[in-house]
Computed example of a mutant assay.
Amino acid sequence: MMVMVVRDQSSQPQDITAGVPQGSIIGPTIFISFISDLLSTIRQSHECTTVGSWADVSLNGTSENQQQEAETDQDQDLDQRDVPERGSCPNGWFYFNYFSSCYRFVPDTQTWIEAELSCQQLATGGHLASIHWKEQNHFIELLLKAEQSNNHVWIGLSDRHKEGTFLWTDGSLSDFTNWHLGEPDNYKGRENCVVINSEKWNDVPCTGKSPFICSYKPHDW
């Protein structure tokens, strides 16, 4: 169905019943003729513009489809801003600008302490990653997805030195957590090291082997 938008060139409203005797009853034939004449008059005295097929239109003149497309574009822009970038980090590392740190996913499976030592060897000032904000936690999850990792991954948190007191290997404060429901539970008294999976954390035995994620600050390189 085509919609015709009529732009009135005059400022005065037109009497569509002009020429019809007051109080008269308009029969079907006369009514059709009257409508035909009315449309002819409108075409001659107005500017008509065909605007395409029918669509719901908001008061600001934007169609519902256009609004949805704009929202989709905005979502895509947000997604693009969330994608990890290499920034000033070396090849194989990704930059998190809010914390000015570089991150690297290592797919080799190692014990927690082996993974920490590997991070120290990969970069000066390197450690298993520490996490201090929700956005940082989300960034690491995006990085793991980019690396197509669906496994539990070591991060630098543990309570190896004192049960229940979790510390980061880089010495930073333990000021943010994102545990799975019911964790940490120190199952059978032997879970002291922490992994991340789907943005949630879990304590597991430190002797298990998992891939890991390292981090360091670029000025320490």
Rank of each mutant, 00 (worst) to 15 (best):
S88K: 05
V194E: 15
T124S: 08
T72A: 10
S58R: 14
D56Y: 11
D82L: 09
C48Y: 13
W133T: 03
P205T: 10
D77G: 03
S198M: 10
L122Y: 00
I213Q: 01
Q120H: 02
P218I: 04
Q22N: 04
H219I: 07
E147G: 02
L117P: 00
F99W: 07
A18M: 15
F166C: 03
S33Y: 08
W93S: 03
M2P: 05
S100W: 10
Q68N: 14
L78F: 12
R160M: 14
V20L: 15
V106P: 10
H161C: 09
S100Y: 10
E71N: 06
E163C: 03
W154L: 05
S198G: 13
I42H: 03
S101W: 02
P205A: 07
T169S: 12
N91I: 02
I30K: 04
G182W: 06
P90R: 00
G61T: 13
S149W: 02
H46N: 12
R43H: 02
I26T: 13
Q120T: 05
N150C: 00
F166T: 04
I25S: 05
G92I: 00
P13N: 09
Y187P: 00
E64W: 12
P205L: 14
I140L: 15
T177W: 06
G125C: 13
W112G: 06
Q22V: 11
C206T: 01
N150L: 12
N197E: 09
T29Q: 15
V83N: 00
P205V: 00
E141F: 05
K134V: 03
E135C: 04
A70D: 03
D203N: 10
P205F: 02
K134T: 05
V3R: 14
S118H: 07
G189E: 02
Q120M: 06
S33N: 13
Q9P: 12
G19T: 03
F31H: 06
S215V: 01
D75K: 06
T62D: 14
E71I: 06
S198L: 14
I32W: 10
L122F: 02
S53F: 04
F31V: 11
I196D: 00
T49K: 04
T111S: 09
D159E: 11
H138R: 05
I30N: 07
F99A: 11
T124H: 06
D108M: 08
V83Y: 00
S149Y: 02
S45Y: 14
S40R: 03
A18P: 08
V153N: 11
S100L: 05
S215G: 11
D220N: 12
H46C: 08
Q76K: 11
A55R: 12
L117K: 10
L39R: 05
A146W: 00
C193K: 08
G23A: 12
P211N: 01
T50H: 10
I26K: 04
S172G: 07
S210I: 01
Q148H: 11
A146D: 07
G52T: 11
